[in-house]
């Protein structure tokens, strides 16, 4: 079970992920990643720092990217790298949308069972690009 590398094509679009980034999601993500910086759970504190609301922490960005990738690639996928550029903040009560597509597929000579996939991804909200990045994962051929 799970996706195989031979089924993946360059240009393939990953199923989009749209989430209402509620305050609950922001706080749940921050605490599940053990990030207790108050800008991620305390609205009064965030306001005092000039932010209109609490906002997502970076560990949660990585987590959602990982989920976005394996929602599509399945349980046999192995994520090898994830490089993201951080853009506009993701404040509580904004909608965040992940999109991605396959930009490359290849195999490596010294590994007869594994196939590589490179995915370009972006998470956007009403302010612009929150996260843009590139991930590499492998699947059984």
């Amino acid at each position: 079970m799970g996706r195989r590398w031979s089924e993946v094509e360059v240009g393939e679009t990953l199923p989009g992920l749209v989430l209402e980034m509620t305050a609950t999601r922001v706080v749940a993500g921050a605490l599940a990643t053990r990030d207790f910086m108050p800008v991620h759970h305390d609205r009064d504190y965030a306001n005092s720092q000039g932010a209109p609301d609490i906002f997502m922490n970076i560990l949660s960005d990585n987590a959602y990217c990982s989920r976005f990738l394996t929602d599509w690639a399945g349980k046999e996928a192995i994520i090898r790298s994830l490089a993201i550029r951080l853009g506009v903040p993701s404040f509580a009560n904004s909608e965040l949308t992940w999109q991605g597509h396959v930009v490359a597929v290849w195999t490596e000579e010294d590994d007869p069972t594994e196939g590589w996939v490179e995915v370009a991804l972006v998470a956007t909200n009403d302010l612009g690009d929150h996260v843009t990045g590139v991930a590499r994962l492998t699947l059984p051929r």
Binding site: M1, G2, R25, A28, G29, L31, A32, T33, S60, A63, Y64, S66, R67, T70, D71, K75, E76, P140
Partner: peptide
């Protein structure tokens, strides 16, 4: 973690599914 991000990948939480995976 999996609950916070609603990540349904069974290899993180389901022993049988993880055992059946690579």
């Amino acid at each position: 973690w999996a609950a916070a991000f609603e990540d349904g990948n069974p290899v993180y939480v389901d022993e049988a599914a993880a055992a059946a995976s690579r």
